[in-house]
């Protein structure tokens, strides 16, 4: 009976347009893909732990790529300083955010962080980056996250840009992709410091929360959830 139910339930696969695709920004003048296995691994964990259905792999796209219309979530990673974007790219990324897209910027090092922040000032000059407060719904959209994750803990907090009550850009200085990255044999690609495996787990949970927030917005701040969340945080 259970088998029959599972068979029925799994009879129809979602079509590609209804799954969540990850765009990964491809740009000239920098290491745009420092953690090639990061999104694949995060996607695996998302599908394993949640009801979200993803496309499993990141799709490398330029800022002006027409395929972005199907991918409102963008992963923008880098290792080392990047060259400035051209005007068309800046305009395209601005339009992407204004249309409803979300960009997660993952900084492997300080040089990339500094250069990408300059680009953000060009893309969204009216909205500077700010620290994301600990009580933000991003930290409770699926898991209740008590500590920060990442391959390293260079800075104690993430930064973000809010427009119309929505986080449109999230910037991690702690190389989350490095913590997520895992090879085809299941071995993690990088050691996590200083917190070890619990810090890696926090990084994975954050990745799941980030996508959950992107798709559900402030759902976990609806009144119906608050008593449950408050009880569990005691």
């Amino acid at each position: 009976m259970i088998a029959l139910l599972l068979l029925t339930l799994s009879a129809i696969e979602p079509h590609p347009s209804s799954t969540v695709a990850f765009a990964q920004l491809k740009y000239a003048g920098g290491a745009w893909n420092p953690r090639p296995n990061a999104i694949r691994r995060l996607s695996f964990e998302i599908e394993k732990r949640t009801s979200i259905i993803t496309t499993h792999e990141a799709t490398p796209v330029a800022a002006t790529d027409a395929r972005l219309v199907d991918m409102p979530f963008m992963y923008w990673a880098g290792d080392g300083a990047m060259a400035p974007l051209d005007g068309a790219q800046v305009a395209a990324l601005r339009r992407y955010v204004k249309a409803g897209g979300v960009i997660f910027i993952d900084c492997v090092d300080e040089a990339f962080e500094a250069s990408v922040k300059k680009e953000l000032l060009r893309i969204l000059p009216e909205s500077p980056l700010g620290l994301i407060p600990e009580e933000h719904v991003l930290y409770k959209s699926f898991y209740l996250i008590p500590a920060h994750g990442g391959r390293v803990l260079r800075k104690p907090a993430l930064e973000g840009i809010v427009q119309e009550d929505r986080l449109v850009v999230v910037l991690s200085p702690n190389d989350h992709g490095g913590a997520w990255s895992r090879d085809d044999f299941g071995r993690y690609d990088f050691e996590v410091e200083p917190g070890g495996e619990s810090q890696r787990e926090m990084a994975l949970r954050f990745g799941i929360n980030l996508l959950m927030y992107t798709l559900c917005l402030d759902y976990k701040e609806d009144q119906v959830h608050i008593p449950f969340i408050m009880r569990r945080r005691k």
Binding site: S18, V20, T50, S51, I53, P72, R166, L217, Y219
Partner: peptide, 28 residues
């Protein structure tokens, strides 16, 4: 399940001053 269709619909309804929205999403 969380999806883009759900996300844009929720956003539209939440922004409407005429709608009191109660949402339940199957997250897992």
């Amino acid at each position: 399940r969380p999806s883009w269709d759900e996300r844009f619909l929720r956003r539209s309804l939440k922004l409407s001053p005429n709608v009191d929205l109660i949402s339940f999403f199957i997250l897992r």
